[in-house]
Design a protein around this nucleic acid. Sequence first.
RNA 1: GGCGACGUAGCCAAGUGGCUAAGGCGGAGGUCUGCAAAACCUCUAUGCAUCGGUUCGAAUCCGAUCGUCGCCUCCA
Length: 485
Amino acid sequence: MPLVLYNTLSRTKEPFQPLHPDLVRMYVCGPTVYGDSHLGHAKSYISFDVIVRYLRFLGYRVLYVQNITDVGHLTDDADEGEDKLVKQSRIDRMHPMQLADMYTRSYYDDMDALNVVRPDIAPRASGHITEQITLIETLLSRDLAYEANGSVYFDVPHYAAYGKLSRRTLDEMNAGTRVEVKSEKRHPADFALWKRAEPGHIMRWPSPWGEGFPGWHIECSAMSMKYLGESFDIHGGGLENQFPHHECEIAQSEGATGRPFVKYWLHNNMVTVDGKKMGKSLGNFITLKDAFARWTPGVVRFFILQSHYRSTLDFSAEALEGAAKGLGKLVNTMRNVQQAAAANTTGTPSGIDLEKHHQAFLTAMNDDFNSPLAIAGLFDLSREVNQALGRGTPLAQEELNAIETFFATHAGEVLGLGIGTGRELSTSQSIDPELLSLFISLRADLRREKLWGLSDKIRDGLLALGIVLEDKKEGTAWKRVSAGQ
RNA sequence: GGCGACGUAGCCAAGUGGCUAAGGCGGAGGUCUGCAAAACCUCUAUGCAUCGGUUCGAAUCCGAUCGUCGCCUCCA
């Protein structure tokens, strides 16, 4: 089955056909950097990370652009609304750009920990004011925008296709109680392309309409088209950006170019807590830095990938603990294979059909990136492998290597779980392996003498330091306390 | 008020017309082990919010009802 993906534009799964045969151009809405990232950010960026990784795995060349929003958006629709970055910087007594830089670094720290591949281009809104002004001028010249008191608004009633992504009509929006009529706007649905800066406003740039700053949606249109062209393949983002943000992006972009903007719109669903959206407004968010204090980044990543990107994912400590155990099982299997391989024996084929598992993985991922189903397949393989290892008859070196490669590729690289790639996404501090092997050797002597009390003292003592010992036929293996503890 | 989702075992979560409803966690029992740990084996939803309907056949399609949530203001 070829790759199909759910396109919000059509509300159906469509076969994936990039505009150019081997090149995929993809844009994902990045964070507004005025605070630490939380689990919701992780779900979004891990989801699109796996999509990028999988497309590359399929052989596509992917150009991945993800912006950093450092201009901020207004906290409300009124003229006196304050830029979130400016507001936070006043609270923190920092320059807005200092704040933006601080949280940009914080964001990448968290994403690096989660093994999220960095975008190929990470443009900042503040660095692309010129491009945004140019785009606004184009819209003005096309009579799709108008100036009012130093601000510029998009003229929504003059743009017929408005609403095609979110499937809303202007009538419906008129009926809505939450769209306020602004005196400057000709129509309640009109949205700002450029805002006049009031005297105290710190973030301001010169423009043909006086000093001001860009509106809430124009940056993504300007930057995506600058780096990916007027038409590109995939645009991703959180579900809550579908309207108005992405609807406005389409209007601005297609209004300016007259060409289709994006072929596939992908939206990830949210992380919930007790069934409610995790977000800044509710104050129920868990920052990634807090989460990492309790679970390793790998566990967080695994937890997120165990549900589909278009499903909501309910956070609870119990669910995270379950994910930690599950990931530990896969990591153990990998370790078992590596230990068996280290024994360097000649052996017999186990009958494990890796090609079958590969096909199952492709089938799962080709169906709109069904990572939970793909992971279920990894557990199936894991069980087969452990059965084979426990059978007593050693496996051939080549087969063990093939299994190791399979895990390293599918779980480690495509899903980014780090398994078998030498990068287990663990935060625990390292322990000297040579010192450890001395203890293990000492304990082996004690066990030979059946001095169980002393040997158990070593095992318990190491456990207290976060090391688990496992006595096997081939000898004693050790590992850090299972991922996530 | 408008628009749109979702409701599968104690928890997380696949499955969207057809063998006995994936997988993980948890739980019960067992094998292995000096004891553990790890691993493996067996069991753990006659049932997919409820009630109707369509169909030879529905968790899957349609309708109603109940419940939860999202968007309509910045938000991944």
